[in-house]
Deep mutational scan, measured.
Amino acid sequence: MDLSALRVEEVQNVINAMQKILECPICLELIKEPVSTKCDHIFCKFCMLKLLNQKKGPSQCPLCKNDITKRSLQESTRFSQLVEELLKIICAFQLDTGLEYANSYNFAKKENNSPEHLKDEVSIIQSMGYRNRAKRLLQSEPENPSLQETSLSVQLSNLGTVRTLRTKQRIQPQKTSVYIELGSDSSEDTVNKATYCSVGDQELLQITPQGTRDEISLDSAKKAACEFSETDVTNTEHHQPSNNDLNTTEKRAAERHPEKYQGSSVSNLHVEPCGTNTHASSLQHENSSLLLTKDRMNVEKAEFCNKSKQPGLARSQHNRWAGSKETCNDRRTPSTEKKVDLNADPLCERKEWNKQKLPCSENPRDTEDVPWITLNSSIQKVNEWFSRSDELLGSDDSHDGESESNAKVADVLDVLNEVDEYSGSSEKIDLLASDPHEALICKSERVHSKSVESNIEDKIFGKTYRKKASLPNLSHVTENLIIGAFVTEPQIIQERPLTNKLKRKRRPTSGL
């Protein structure tokens, strides 16, 4: 017993010596996670971090007073192994002897410093981030199933929210409404489509400006004509009531908005009720001829604005009016007729031209339509002016008669200019590109209106002035400009410049 007691005391002394060697000089306990400095002193990692955080910048070693920084600290694995072995020896000594260790306080702390507990403390002390800490805590505590279930439920809930957000973003663009038309193969669909197009076009005519009305009406008319041609002859009974509906809707729209509806009346003529396609083609032919005449008058307007600064050229074209007008009339009417003589009366030419125009518009179905009313009214106005011209010709002399006839021709041009508003800008460009020769010939008609105004002003003063002067240069210039014009009389060319000069002198006297 005595020997055993001596041996136990010796073992205890050895353990105490080893414990003092492996103590931390700051906390005076076994080193936890030993860290060595540049001066080869060993301290606990937790104690050194606490010391360095007390001051900004480098701190001093507690043993040798040298500078220490966080970067200079290094882990010493050898001392950590020695500490672990010492703890194992102490545990074995207690089991063999059955005696508690003399320094129970220190031993209890040593026992608490088992490797499992050290790992837990290291995970908390090290600044490795929240995710690494959570992982280490889960690994160190596998015995708690409640914690695992809560963490898994949190992760699953987070994943569910992310997935639901993604699915919502994908589903939202798919919620856009999609309209699908289910059509049938019955023959009544074509008639319904035609009526739908006509009503939609009328609404567009009321909303859209004048520049786009003609294009819309032309497209709708083409669509309706194609649909009529596709149907068989057996379905004509269905077409006639639908066309009557079209007429009623167009008349109502014309009564409500007459000014807006006139812009599309000329282009919509071939959508009118037709028994066969031949009647629609004839109407299209007549409309094309009318559009040609209207576009020519538009060309004359532009030329008149350009040549208004040259009064000499405008005056020299006075007698070329009849010849150029004959050529335009021959090209406007498709019928083959002989040219009228140069010395014939211009009023007779106008009456013949009106007689040619009237039969074209005397179809029984055309008179029933609303768009032809505008053309009939313009023709009636022309006839009224010609009836007035006959009365004026009986009273005035030959020279005054010529000037009045020219004035009436200008009035006719004004009437025809009203129809110019109905034609589109695209048709003007096509006419100029296809028929430049006709445009040059028809330019002379509009330029002549300037000389007509001068004659009217001469009649106000009650006299006409003449001068025997020749202007050969002007006649040559005008002959080169206009290709299809005829030779003019030299006496009238000489008379016109004198009248304008005298007018300039006598205007201030009349004002006084």
Rank of each mutant, 00 (worst) to 15 (best):
L52Y: 01
N103D: 15
I125P: 14
V178A: 05
N144W: 10
C39L: 00
L159H: 02
P173S: 03
A134G: 09
K45A: 09
S157V: 08
T176F: 14
N113G: 07
K168Q: 12
L147Q: 03
P142S: 07
N144V: 05
N106E: 10
S146E: 05
E29D: 15
E23I: 05
L165H: 07
R170Q: 04
F79V: 06
I68C: 13
K135P: 11
T167S: 06
I125T: 13
L138K: 14
Q155D: 10
S184R: 06
F43K: 00
L165R: 07
L22M: 04
L3H: 15
Q74E: 08
I125G: 09
E84M: 01
L147I: 12
I90S: 02
L137N: 04
S104D: 13
I42C: 15
G57A: 11
V162A: 09
M48T: 07
R166W: 13
Q54L: 13
F79A: 05
E121H: 05
T97Q: 02
L152P: 06
I68T: 13
K88D: 12
Q148K: 05
Y179N: 14
I42W: 06
L99C: 12
A5N: 11
Y130W: 12
E75R: 11
V178N: 06
D2E: 11
A134E: 07
S59G: 08
E29F: 02
T164H: 04
C27S: 00
L52H: 01
A5R: 11
K45C: 02
S104K: 12
E111P: 13
G129T: 11
Y130Q: 14
Q54V: 10
V154K: 11
D120H: 04
K135R: 10
K168I: 10
K32A: 11
V35C: 08
F107H: 13
A17Q: 01
L22P: 00
E10I: 14
N132K: 03
R131E: 11
N112S: 02
E100H: 12
D189H: 15
P145D: 04
L30S: 05
K168N: 13
C47P: 00
I26G: 02
E75G: 11
C61V: 00
V35L: 06
T37D: 04
I171Y: 15
L63G: 12
K45S: 04
C39A: 00
V299H: 15
Q148M: 08
Q148Y: 14
A92Q: 00
I90D: 04
Q169T: 09
I124D: 07
L22K: 01
E100Y: 02
T97R: 03
L28V: 11
L118A: 13
L138Q: 02
C27P: 00
L152V: 05
V14A: 05
H41M: 01
S153W: 05
T77P: 12
R163G: 07
K135Q: 13
V14Q: 15
G275D: 01
E116R: 10
L22V: 03
I171S: 14
P58E: 15
R7S: 02
G183L: 08
I124A: 05
L30D: 10
I68P: 02
S4E: 12
T176S: 05
S123M: 14
Y101V: 10
I89K: 00
I125Y: 14
S184T: 15
T176V: 07
K168R: 06
N158Y: 14
G183V: 05
I124W: 06
Y105D: 11
D40E: 05
A225T: 15
N144Y: 05
N113A: 06
K168W: 04
R78Q: 12
H117P: 01
P25Q: 10
I21K: 07
T150Q: 12
Q155M: 10
I42Q: 12
A108T: 13
P34A: 11
R131T: 12
N66M: 06
K32L: 09
L82F: 02
Y130C: 02
R170E: 09
L3G: 09
G160N: 13
Q139W: 07
L99I: 03
L165C: 11
P25M: 01
H239A: 00
N132Y: 02
P34S: 01
R7K: 12
T164P: 04
T161G: 09
V178D: 05
L28G: 14
L73K: 03
S184L: 10
T150S: 06
I42R: 13
S146Q: 14
E33V: 09
M128F: 07
P25W: 02
D120A: 06
E100M: 07
A134N: 11
N113F: 02
M48R: 01
G129C: 10
S76G: 04
P25G: 14
E84V: 10
Q174L: 09
Q169V: 07
V178T: 13
V11P: 01
P173E: 12
C39Q: 00
P115G: 10
Q94R: 04
K45T: 13
L118N: 09
L152N: 13
Y105V: 10
R136T: 03
T161L: 09
F79Q: 01
N53F: 14
G160R: 11
G129Q: 14
K168G: 08
Q174H: 12
T97M: 01
L73W: 10
K110C: 10
K55W: 10
L147R: 06
Q169E: 05
M18N: 00
E116P: 06
E84T: 15
V122I: 15
L182R: 06
G183H: 07
S186P: 07
S177P: 06
V178W: 05
K70N: 06
T97C: 00
A134H: 09
C64F: 00
T161P: 14
I89N: 01
S104A: 11
V83A: 13
Y101L: 08
L159T: 05
V154E: 08
P115A: 03
R136E: 03
S80Q: 13
R131G: 10
E111T: 09
D2Y: 07
G160S: 15
S104H: 15
D40T: 03
H41L: 00
I124P: 11
E121N: 07
F79M: 08
C27V: 00
Q54S: 10
K135N: 05
P145L: 11
L156K: 04
S127H: 05
P145T: 14
E100N: 02
N144I: 09
A92S: 12
R133N: 13
N103T: 07
K50R: 05
I15A: 00
V35Y: 13
E10C: 05
R166D: 08
F43L: 00
P34W: 01
I21E: 00
N113V: 10
L30W: 00
V178H: 03
E33R: 13
S127L: 05
S140E: 04
N158W: 11
E116A: 07
R7W: 03
S72V: 06
G129Y: 12
K168P: 13
S76A: 11
L52V: 05
Q81R: 14
T164C: 09
V122G: 07
S80T: 15
E100P: 13
T190V: 08
D120F: 03
N113H: 05
V11G: 01
V83K: 10
G183K: 14
Y130M: 08
